[in-house]
């Protein structure tokens, strides 16, 4: 009897967790099918009177929406690629090579993990202004690509790769670049996926930095688009919800596709 009660309690609790994680998203999805007066109306209505696909087709016909989705997507791919190259090379050097000033450089790289964005927001803005990077794709892609956190994570992973693997290659006369490309890169696919996906997500979801550095509507990022829509066209709530749903979809799908690696990558050792 107590056993049954415990099971019921556990299932109830599990349902509660699932509901609280997913309900807000489901609510956004449902609201995306409502007419503009239905989203928040009295008397309250849970489901729309008629399910309006028009919101979705209408937002997909908005050139500004499509442009910001496209620009953000391309930027996120570039950002993920750059992060992968920069951070994996650095991590490999710290994990396996023996060079001058190694300790000092390592401390510097690690320290950058603890610098909050707000402390360097204005001075980073000064730097990108002086480099004439404002209103370019580069200002979104380049400044955040190097990450102490990602280097730390990849280094931990590389340290776990058996040394025997590369010793054989070294004896055969393989250089460090070949070892990095042909041994370390394929063997650490899982860790690289984590770096690539988290970089993509970070770029896709970024809001504050784009707001500061992008005023050209052609380069508007998707989060900028949504926030601007929210304040400028606040009466068109159904449309906004449809747009938000479509903007959330890529990251949810990306996460689901790589959930095993992402969840496996969460460990206490490298969290910040």
């Amino acid at each position: 009897m107590t056993r049954l009660l415990v099971t019921i309690g556990k299932v109830f609790l599990a349902g509660l967790f699932l509901l609280s994680a997913l309900f807000p998203l489901a609510w956004m999805l449902i609201a995306g099918f409502k007419s503009k007066t239905e989203v928040v109306q009295t008397p309250f209505q849970f489901f729309p009177e008629v399910w309006r696909w028009e919101n979705y087709t209408q937002i997909l016909e908005d050139p500004a929406f499509l442009r910001s989705i496209g620009v953000t997507f391309v930027g996120a791919l570039l950002f993920a690629a750059l992060s992968l190259v920069v951070n994996s090379l650095g991590a490999y050097a710290f994990a396996r090579l023996d060079f001058a000033f190694k300790r000092t450089l390592w401390v510097v790289v690690i320290t950058t993990m603890f610098i909050p964005g707000i402390a360097i927001m204005l001075t980073s803005f000064i730097v990108v202004t002086q480099l004439h990077m404002l209103d370019t794709m580069a200002v979104l892609v380049v400044p955040g690509a190097a990450s102490g956190l990602q280097v730390f994570f990849l280094r931990q992973y590389y340290l776990g790769v058996p040394v025997a693997l590369e010793e054989a290659a070294l004896i055969d006369g393989a250089g460090r670049w070949r070892i990095f490309l042909h041994i370390f890169t394929p063997i650490s696919k899982g860790a690289l996926v984590v770096v690539g996906v988290t970089s993509f997500l970070a770029f896709w979801n970024a809001y504050v930095w784009p707001v500061l550095t992008i005023t050209d509507a052609n380069l508007f990022q998707i989060q900028q688009y949504l926030a601007t829509f929210r304040s400028d066209r606040s009466s068109e709530l159904g449309l906004l919800m449809a747009g938000s749903t479509l903007a959330a979809l890529p990251v949810i799908l990306l996460f689901l596709a790589f959930q095993k690696q992402i969840i496996g990558g969460i460990r206490i050792s490298g969290m910040k």
Binding site: L22, L25, N205, Q223, R230, A247, F255
Partner: peptide, 19 residues
């Protein structure tokens, strides 16, 4: 499931919770 909200942007979360 519990991790899904973590990949949603703060802007979208703000929009959802506003309604």
């Amino acid at each position: 499931t519990i991790y899904v909200p973590a990949v949603i942007s703060e802007v979208i979360a703000s929009i959802i919770f506003t309604i």
